[in-house]
C-alpha cells in the first residue's frame, strides 16, 4: 500500500530525513518510535504533504501512485489521514460543518454523491459512539476551547468519518490521561480492518499496550536504525534509547 524508498527531506535547508525505507501493507499496524528530534513528526508531515518540508531525494508510492506528486488535499482524498499532534482551531466553524465539507469533497473526488444533511447526521451519530464524543462538542467551533483529550478524540472521530486507507497518528497519546487514551485507542482499534493500515508515531510504549503494532521501527537521526516486533517497544521502554543511539552512531562512524 505504502512504499517509502530512500526518502530525504529537509526544512529550510536543514536535512531532517536522511534515507527512510519503509513498506506498509494493508491490515498492518506500524509503530514509529524514537527520541526527540529524530524526525518522527517530519515523516508524518512529509507523507501528508506539508509544504515547509522539501523532499530532496527518494520516492513514496501509495496504492501505486506517486504520493509526492499529489497536493495535500488529493492525498487526503486518496485515503491518507493524519491525526495531528496539535489539532488546529478554526473559530466560528463547527466541527459538524467542517466535517461535512470535508466528507463531501472527498466523496466528490471518489465519484460519490454528496451526503445530504440527514444522511450525514445519521452517519455521524453512528461514528460518534466509537470515540464516545458528545454532539454538543461537535456543534462548537472546531477545536476551540477543547481540552487536550477532546481534541484527540475529535481527530479520531474525523478519521472514522473519512474512512482512510492509511492513518498516521502523530503522537496521539501526548496530553492524554489514561481514560482518554483508552477511549482513543478503542476507536482506532475498531476502525482497523484488513483493507487499511495504521502508522502510529509515538515516544512511549504506553500507547502500544492499547494499539498493538505488528512492527516497531526506531527512528534516529533521520533514519530507521532498528526494526522489530512489539517486543522491541518493550525493550525500549526498559532500556531507553541510548543503546540504540550508540549502536547507530558506532555503525555510522
Amino acid at each position: 500500500m505504502l512504499k517509502i524508498k530512500n526518502l530525504h527531506a529537509s526544512i529550510e535547508g536543514t536535512p531532517i530525513l536522511k534515507g527512510i525505507n519503509l513498506e506498509v501493507k494493508p491490515g498492518e499496524v506500524h509503530a514509529i518510535m524514537g527520541p526527540n528530534g529524530s524526525g518522527k513528526s517530519t515523516l508524518a508531515s512529509v507523507l501528508a504533504g506539508r509544504e515547509e518540508y522539501e523532499v530532496t531525494e527518494g520516492e513514496v508510492s501509495f496504492k501505486g501512485k506517486d504520493l509526492l506528486e499529489l497536493s495535500p488535499e488529493d492525498r487526503a482524498r486518496e485515503g491518507v489521514f493524519l491525526a495531528f499532534q496539535y489539532p488546529v482551531e478554526i473559530p466560528g466553524v463547527s466541527s459538524t460543518n467542517f466535517l461535512r465539507t470535508a466528507v463531501n469533497q472527498v466523496r466528490e473526488y471518489r465519484g460519490l454523491e454528496a451526503l445530504d444533511a440527514v444522511k450525514f447526521l445519521s452517519i455521524m451519530k453512528e461514528k460518534m459512539k466509537l470515540v464516545e464524543i458528545d454532539q454538543k462538542l461537535l456543534s462548537r467551533s472546531l477545536n476551540e476551547g477543547f481540552s487536550g483529550g477532546e481534541k484527540k478524540r475529535n481527530e479520531i472521530f474525523q478519521m472514522a468519518m473519512l474512512e482512510p486507507t492509511l492513518s498516521i497518528l502523530d503522537e496521539t497519546d501526548s496530553g492524554l490521561d489514561i481514560d482518554a487514551l483508552r477511549i482513543v485507542s478503542n476507536g482506532v482499534n475498531q476502525l482497523k480492518s484488513s483493507e487499511n493500515a495504521t502508522i502510529v508515531v509515538t515516544h512511549y510504549q504506553r500507547l502500544l499496550d492499547y494499539i498493538v503494532p505488528d512492527f516497531v521501527h526506531v527512528l534516529y537521526n533521520g533514519k530507521i536504525v532498528k526494526s522489530g516486533t512489539k517486543e522491541l517497544a518493550l525493550e525500549l521502554e526498559e532500556k531507553g534509547y541510548d543503546w540504540i543511539k550508540e549502536e547507530a552512531d558506532a555503525a555510522s562512524v
Binding site: A48, G49, E73, A76, F81, L82, P87, V88, T101, A102
Partner: peptide, 15 residues
C-alpha cells in the same frame, strides 16, 4: 494560518 489551511487540506478540503 498555514496551519489552518493545511489542516483543512489534510481533510480533503481544497484551499
Amino acid at each position: 494560518g498555514e496551519d489552518q489551511l493545511f489542516y483543512c487540506n489534510q481533510r480533503g478540503i481544497a484551499t
